[in-house]
């Protein structure tokens, strides 16, 4: 029982530490939005810092997807007004398309 409690206490401390850490991380993060409108991603090139969560929102009456060419992220179909968020933790250039309308191309540059 005592052992159990000690373990719980240790666990609770860890959880608290993680919570603080993640809150700090949240404050450090940026968020950015890409609009999907009239069969285009806007902006077509978005530059963000590592750790940024990018949210896409579809404003068209037609569904679209956010599908990375290297398979890293795939939103699935987004209907009108639906959103999809992906956090970019590593630097790089991430090209993506709408898999339903592949002429729609864009990229996220993570610095």
């Amino acid at each position: 029982m005592t052992f159990g409690f000690a373990q719980f206490a240790r666990g609770a401390t860890t959880v608290a530490a993680l919570l603080i850490a993640s809150q700090l991380q949240v404050h450090a993060q940026q968020s950015s939005v890409v609009s999907i409108k009239n069969f285009d991603f806007a902006p077509m090139t978005l530059t963000v810092k590592a750790g940024t969560a990018v949210t896409w929102k579809n404003f068209d009456g037609e569904p679209h997807t956010v599908t990375s060419l290297d398979g890293l992220f795939r939103s699935g179909a987004l209907d009108t007004d639906e959103t999809y968020t992906f956090r970019f933790d590593r630097q790089g250039i991430y090209k993506y398309v709408c898999s339903i309308h592949p002429r729609m191309t864009a990229m996220i540059i993570v610095k």
């Binding site: 569904p63 997807t65 795939r74 939103s75 699935g76 179909a77 898999s99 339903i100």
Partner: peptide, 8 residues
């Protein structure tokens, strides 16, 4: 393409 628009 609408039938294969799910993430998987």
């Amino acid at each position: 393409e609408h039938d294969v628009a799910d993430a998987n």
